[in-house]
């Protein structure tokens, strides 16, 4: 119940934010407040610059920090070094901000990182930014609607704890790092609606714990790596609305944990052959609905 209330309250604050322009908080705008028991802090604002409240320092139990900017342009965050003091932080959500340079920051217990509609500015790359040192215990990364991402920083591949990688609606993402397969703990790989992505690096076939691949609506995605059959844990593939996929690798027949494939009509026949050999597999054709009939309802 409390969690539901939290969701309601936090979602509620997103409603009707169209008509204001000033929301910048500077260092002098904050005063000393103490929140010794705070576990969740939600910060909503509308401005180009935002000084993170110094009283975050007085939140020793903070587990989740959500920072959402509602303005049309990306906000620059200040006082970011405060992240170093958040030893108990498990979850960080950043929305519509310029992602800060994390160099020199250690977020030891961070498990989930959500970066939504943000500008990355290559700040997650370079020699001084080793994501596996900054986030040594990360289990989940989501990059959603980050339009300036063309490739993924390769140091992501060294985060050995990573179980869930979600890159969704990143409209300029062209390729994934060659060594992506080094993520041996990865269970979920979601690449929904990345229209420039054409293939996956062959190394992903080494991800022995991978259970779920979603490449749906990657409209230029053309093929899975030939050795996909090596993915012994793979249970579900979602490849609907991938109109460039014309064939299924032969090795797919040896996917021993496979249970469900969702695909377009064009490749349904090929998956049916796999289904014949493996009765436990269910092949489902996606229903496409591109018409405008809903307008007349």
């Amino acid at each position: 119940m409390n969690f539901i209330l939290f969701l309601l309250v936090s979602n509620a604050l997103r409603v009707s934010d169209k008509f204001y322009i000033v929301g910048e908080m500077k260092e002098r705008d904050w005063c000393k407040l103490e929140f010794p028991k705070a576990e969740v802090l939600i910060i909503n604002f509308t401005s180009k610059d935002y000084f993170l409240p110094p009283f975050i320092d007085k939140m020793p139990n903070l587990r989740a920090l959500i920072v959402i900017n509602y303005s049309a342009s990306y906000a620059c965050l200040h006082n970011v070094s405060i992240f170093n003091n958040l030893a108990n932080l498990r979850s960080l959500w950043l929305e519509k901000v310029s992602v800060p340079q994390f160099g020199g920051i250690l977020m030891e217990n961070l498990g989930k990182l959500f970066i939504v509609s943000c500008k990355i500015n290559n700040n997650l790359e370079g020699k001084e930014v080793n994501l596996s040192q900054i986030f040594p215990n990360l289990s989940e990364i989501t990059l959603d609607h980050c339009d300036d991402v063309t490739s993924l920083p390769s140091s992501i591949c060294r985060i050995q704890s990573l179980q869930n990688l979600s890159l969704t609606e990143c409209h300029n993402l062209e390729q994934l790092p060659v060594e992506l397969g080094a993520l041996r703990s990865l269970e979920i790989l979601r690449l929904y609606a990345c229209p420039l992505l054409k293939t996956l690096p062959p190394s992903i076939c080494d991800m022995t714990r991978l259970k779920y691949i979603d490449v749906s609506q990657c409209v230029n995605f053309s093929c899975f790596p030939e050795e996909i059959g090596k993915l012994v844990s793979l249970e579900k593939i979602d490849m609907r609305e991938c109109c460039m996929i014309k064939k299924v690798p032969k090795s797919a027949i040896s996917l021993k944990s496979l249970r469900l494939v969702i695909c377009d009509e064009e490749v349904f026949g090929m998956w049916k052959d796999v289904e014949k050999a493996k009765p436990n597999v269910h092949i489902q054709v996606s229903e496409q609905c591109f018409d405008l009939e809903w307008l007349s309802e």
Partner: peptide
Amino acid sequence: REKGLPKEWLRNKHKPFEAQIVSIHTGTC
């Protein structure tokens, strides 16, 4: 949403806040 923190919060700042969930929303209409 308000320009800064609510006055009611500032009036009570001499005592720690017990809240587990804190949500702030700044921006001027």
